[in-house]
Amino acid sequence: MPVPPIDTADESEQEICRQHLQILALIGDKWTILVIGRLRDRTLRFGELHRAVTGISQRMLTRTLRQLERDGLLTRTVHPSVPPRVEYTLTELGSTLLDSLSYLAEWATTNRQQITANRRHYDATHQGD
């Protein structure tokens, strides 16, 4: 069941800007992007996510999953079994983020060679700065 939006009529521009920056920091985090990308097609258990997201520690995965759940981008379902089976699924809101992330990934793919060349040129011309 979707949570009704908060009335922002009384919020200052500074508060709204702060909230925007927090959200952008979350969705710009590499672990967030990788977790959401892995959940794109199906529900996964914690261990499956941990194996699928190369390089993430269990602690960082737990933190990332909690934040995404808190923000309503995924749901956590605990199945009563021994040991408990915990599954993660993107919410409708989380799924809406996939299109934007796909555009960013496409942009990165299209421009990666130019950016790499620019970095090499900059590094070569700014040695000793």
Results as ranks from 00 to 15, higher is better:
88 Y>G: 04
113 Q>H: 12
95 S>G: 12
39 L>F: 01
62 T>R: 14
104 L>A: 12
3 V>P: 02
37 G>E: 03
80 P>M: 11
75 T>Y: 05
77 T>Q: 12
50 H>K: 09
57 S>A: 04
61 L>T: 06
6 I>K: 10
34 L>G: 00
2 P>F: 06
27 I>T: 10
62 T>V: 07
29 D>V: 01
17 C>S: 14
58 Q>F: 00
42 R>T: 05
23 I>T: 14
96 T>V: 11
82 V>I: 14
56 I>F: 05
61 L>P: 03
48 E>Q: 15
73 L>C: 07
11 E>L: 15
17 C>D: 10
54 T>A: 15
79 H>M: 14
23 I>C: 09
93 L>S: 09
8 T>V: 15
40 R>S: 06
98 L>K: 01
92 E>Q: 09
126 H>L: 03
47 G>P: 00
87 E>Q: 08
74 L>H: 04
51 R>S: 15
64 T>Y: 03
30 K>L: 09
114 Q>P: 03
99 D>I: 09
99 D>C: 07
46 F>E: 04
56 I>M: 09
8 T>N: 11
75 T>W: 05
9 A>G: 13
111 N>R: 11
69 E>L: 02
116 T>P: 01
6 I>G: 04
67 Q>L: 13
6 I>C: 10
34 L>N: 07
46 F>K: 02
45 R>W: 00
112 R>L: 12
67 Q>A: 15
61 L>A: 05
33 I>V: 14
36 I>C: 10
86 V>R: 07
35 V>S: 06
9 A>D: 11
114 Q>L: 13
46 F>G: 01
81 S>N: 10
4 P>L: 12
34 L>F: 04
109 T>W: 09
109 T>M: 12
48 E>T: 12
80 P>E: 13
63 R>C: 06
104 L>C: 08
81 S>E: 11
43 T>C: 13
121 H>S: 15
51 R>E: 15
15 E>N: 10
73 L>S: 00
28 G>Q: 02
25 A>P: 00
13 E>I: 07
85 R>P: 01
113 Q>K: 13
57 S>L: 02
76 R>K: 15
122 Y>D: 12
84 P>D: 02
110 T>Y: 05
33 I>K: 13
64 T>N: 01
106 E>D: 11
56 I>A: 11
80 P>G: 09
43 T>M: 09
64 T>F: 00
24 L>R: 10
72 G>W: 05
123 D>G: 03
